[in-house]
Nucleic acid binder design. Structure first.
Length: 269
DNA sequence: ATCGGGACCTGCTTGC
DNA sequence: TGCAAGCAGGTCCCGA
């Protein structure tokens, strides 16, 4: 489900509902996520004030007056704001309980994770991450330099979180299409000029998706349960067999390291 | 050092 | 209609 735009949509959505609020309780109905939830979590979090809601890569970081809650939504996770009278459904694994509302974590596939980071501590999962794509740290020169000597396909290269964070399968497909780059081309064999174009296309694609509230395919919903509308703007993802919007050729589908890739053999070289 | 594949889970769609 | 296979937005970890 969530790539960076969906996580950012979630961040913006929950922020006004929880900022400045005090955690009254934490209810863990199912702690077996990608990594087990620390049984001490409720006691660490109880009584804390939420000071800010940040994001690093696809991790949400809820800062309190003494430590941070780090949440990853995995493939199928979502966060909603609800009231106390709404009963949890199947896969509603965790509630962060405030006075009037609850922040409810739902994750059918349980690929998500929740960690408590005491004080100012970081987390090993955060330490190796590449730059944020929507900052000046991502440039064509950076991608070009990082790609030298790499023989793997450019699609896997831009989806590698050590290189740049936040580019998942949907937006990797869309960005490469926009940039006119064939997804199977070796990352190390692409010119600096083409990487300039690609970095621009990644930013444009992610920004447009954020503006539309993310992409809802199956289960992504915003904090109020509403879907995102970027699926209507997807040019290649999910459109294999349909005509390319630019040249009219039929869009092709291939598998690259277990993920579906859709592209236009006419426009992407 | 880099790369591809398997693993972790459930639910939905597809095809026989 | 029923059942099994295949696939899904992520990403860590392993062996080659």
């Amino acid at each position: 489900m969530p790539e960076l735009p969906e996580v950012e949509t979630t961040r913006v959505g929950i922020e006004p509902h929880i900022i400045g609020r005090q955690v009254k309780a934490v209810v863990v109905r199912e702690g077996r996520l990608r990594w087990p939830i620390d049984p001490g979590l409720p006691q660490y979090l109880k009584g804390r004030l939420i000071k800010s809601v940040g994001r690093r890569a696809k991790y949400l970081l809820l800062s309190t007056n003494a430590g941070r809650l780090m949440i990853h939504l995995g493939m199928s996770g979502s966060l909603r704001i609800t009231t106390h009278d709404v009963d949890p459904e199947t896969h509603d694994h965790v509630d962060i309980v405030f006075d009037q509302t609850r922040l409810r974590f739902r994750d059918p596939r349980r690929f998500g994770s929740i960690f408590w980071l005491p004080g100012e501590e970081s987390h090993p999962l955060l330490d190796h991450l590449g730059p944020e794509p929507l900052t000046d740290a991502l440039t064509g020169d950076y991608l070009h330099q990082m790609s030298r000597g790499r023989r793997g396909p450019v699609k896997a290269f831009i989806m590698n979180a050590d290189v740049v964070v936040g580019v998942g399968n949907i937006y990797a497909n869309e960005s490469l299409y926009k940039a006119g780059i064939h997804p199977a081309r070796a990352a190390g064999a692409i010119s600096a000029k083409r990487y300039q174009r690609l970095s621009k296309c990644i930013k444009e694609t992610l920004n447009a998706a954020i503006a539309a509230g993310g992409t809802s395919l199956r289960d992504f919903v915003r904090e109020d349960g509403a879907p995102g509308y970027f699926s209507q703007a997807l040019e290649v993802y999910g459109r294999a067999g349909m005509p390319c919007g630019q040249c009219g050729k039929v869009l092709k589908e291939i598998r690259q390291s277990g993920r579906t890739t859709v592209f236009c053999a006419g426009c992407q070289r």
